[in-house]
Design a protein around this nucleic acid. Structure first.
Lengths: 346, 346
DNA sequence: GTAACTGCCTAAACCGGTTTAATCACTCAT
DNA sequence: ATGAGTGATTAAACCGGTTTAGGCAGTTAC
């Protein structure tokens, strides 16, 4: 049993042809007689030969890998339900193409640009996913400068040279508000994510717009940070208002679940005295008490679409069309109900 | 502005030396006059040259990357607090060494061996982390056969050619049981993880042993699956017992939080009528109601230690000593209290 | 004065593929 | 018979580093 990996030269000599011929056969390029191709492929098969990624990378100047840089505090990242599913979706596309996913987790304090620079300069990846898109995101300029293909998850408001894969945050949020309005709520508050993030402001604006549609104004909008701790604090502030809300719409499940906890802590019944809604439909949403009304997106599908789009950009180059994913859907559970004191105001 | 990346030849000609000299200078190898080294490094600096990873990979037959294969259902993985922090710890070691992390998420249904095979045969990584270690884990044999260095997270019971980085699950679990015993609980149950996993059985055995230490037997041990859904089901079964437990120790936080939900659903007060303890200290543990008594490990440190150990194995080869991490600590919160009907027996 | 050694540096092979230009053996048209 | 054209194949350059063997100049040893 030879422990050494066979090389293309071994295959060539076994098939009685040149290295070049083997390469042609492998890549299905025209110019070889069918019989020769068959003979080469058979030889490769018998030797168990698979072309070396390293050699291929060097000669064709491609990495056969995509990169994902996640800029988050690991503690915060911990319970984010988006990325694992997103990554799984990405992988489902990469696996069949023999590509790999290079992951980088950057703590916000550090220089996130350095993360992308390393990926680009080391030639580790052929393209990257731009997640957690921010307003005037500096990474767009950075990647343009680095010449690294990218796909943005959702659309930046400024002009961007990169294709965007979008999952509109608004319909889900609007559905939540409409659901609460139908139940009879009129005093509704929102706990938003950091305004730097596109998806945070999108949800906030959708919230405001949906209320305005019904001629209402938010009781309050608390700007928070998507963490459980932040959700707790924001909830306390809302409950301390002179005229507190009868329902709170949170920008994600973590804050919402923490909000339920804070409400209970304050002696309020959920949904009896306070209705709560989240966003994400994380695993726990169904199993906390009361189970959480929330909005379910499809992060796996998001990952698939993003990977496909990025590969299209890398392979074909030029202009790649944006992709619009089906919007998130409302999932009604037990944390929302008719308000205790309905319709104070006409 | 030349858009082309400089190569080692550019640096060489600028410094007036040969390619080989540049390589020597870069890698700090002896045999070059200090003045020459300085000149070369200055030239490299001026050109902004960084050696190409691809070329280096090919010539030294190393990938400069480590691999992590996670075999989980993405839905389940979603809310696992371990991996994000673990990965961040790994990266903190890799970043300074210019290494990358290649991630692969394999759905349990698929062939997980294929994932490792791909990583090994494509030469993507120089070594891998073996997480979620199972009893008689087939991956140990597989990796031995593939000749891929690895580090196991925790120690397999059989003989293993790989160094183990261990975080003993037992002290934390024992501390939980002792805490409950001190509160006066005598009827304690456990919701365990799948027995295939080493850490699941370790926690279960520690639970049984700690009770035995006090001359007690478990009310019941429900085998579950670490998911919130599983935690709910297991809890329902325990509460339906003729003599239900006054406290339940869960093998992780997700099941515990779902357990609190199930208890509330059943009309039980936590911790008034049922004490609940988890394991992991996930982000939400502190913010659910009541806040969850649990056990806090240090997954970030786990990642650091694992990465360092794996690199040691790759660089030095031979025998690398196992690493024992400081054990997890008990975090007492509000979900545990004196039982309602204390000390029925003895 | 020459052999042996040392310190510094270079030429060239090498890693394992891809790709281009050239070669060879045929057939076909003139 | 000759030239052109076509299809199958190969030799060799190339990607950008690392590494080995060896060359050259300047001591030192005898």
């Amino acid at each position: 049993m030879s422990k050494e990996r066979p090389t293309i030269a071994d295959v060539a000599s076994r098939a009685g042809v040149s290295k070049g011929a083997v390469s042609f056969a492998l890549n299905g390029r025209p110019g070889l007689a069918q019989a020769t191709v068959d003979r080469i492929l058979a030889a490769a098969d018998e030797l168990g030969w698979r072309p070396s990624n390293r050699a291929r990378s060097l000669s064709v100047s491609k990495a056969f890998a995509l990169g994902l840089v996640i800029t988050r505090d690991p503690a915060v990242l911990s319970s984010d339900p988006f990325f694992p599913a997103f990554i799984a979706g990405v992988e489902s596309v990469l696996a069949s193409r023999g590509q790999a996913l290079v992951l980088q987790v950057v703590t916000p304090g550090e220089d996130e640009a350095a993360g992308y620079r390393r990926l680009a300069q080391d030639g580790r990846v052929d393209g990257v996913f731009l997640s957690d898109l921010r307003h005037d995101d500096p990474r767009i300029g950075l990647l343009t400068e680095l010449g690294l293909p990218a796909v943005t998850l959702n659309r930046p408001e400024g002009s961007s040279p990169f294709p965007a894969v979008c999952l509109d945050d608004r319909p889900g949020t609007i559905a939540v508000v409409e659901h609460l309005l139908e139940l009879g709520h009129r005093r509704i508050a929102h706990v938003a994510g950091p305004p730097a993030f596109v998806h945070a402001t999108a949800r906030e604006q959708a919230f405001v717009a949906a209320l305005a549609e019904a001629g209402l104004e938010p009781v309050a909008i608390e700007v928070s940070d998507f963490t459980a701790a932040g959700g707790t604090e924001a909830t306390k502030r809302l409950l301390a208002l002179a005229a507190p809300p009868t329902a709170i719409v949170y920008a994600n499940d973590r804050m919402a679940i923490a909000g339920i906890g804070a409400a209970h802590e304050a002696g309020l019944a959920v949904p009896g005295q306070l209705s709560v809604a989240g966003y994400d439909d994380s695993e726990l949403a169904e199993f906390v008490h009361p189970s959480l009304t929330t909005v379910r997106a499809d992060p796996f599908g998001f990952g698939e679409a993003a990977a496909r789009t990025l590969n299209l950009l890398i392979d074909e180059g030029g202009e790649v069309a944006d992709v619009e994913l089906p919007p998130a859907r409302l999932v009604v559970r037990r944390s929302t109900a008719t308000p205790a004191d309905p319709l104070e105001e006409s």
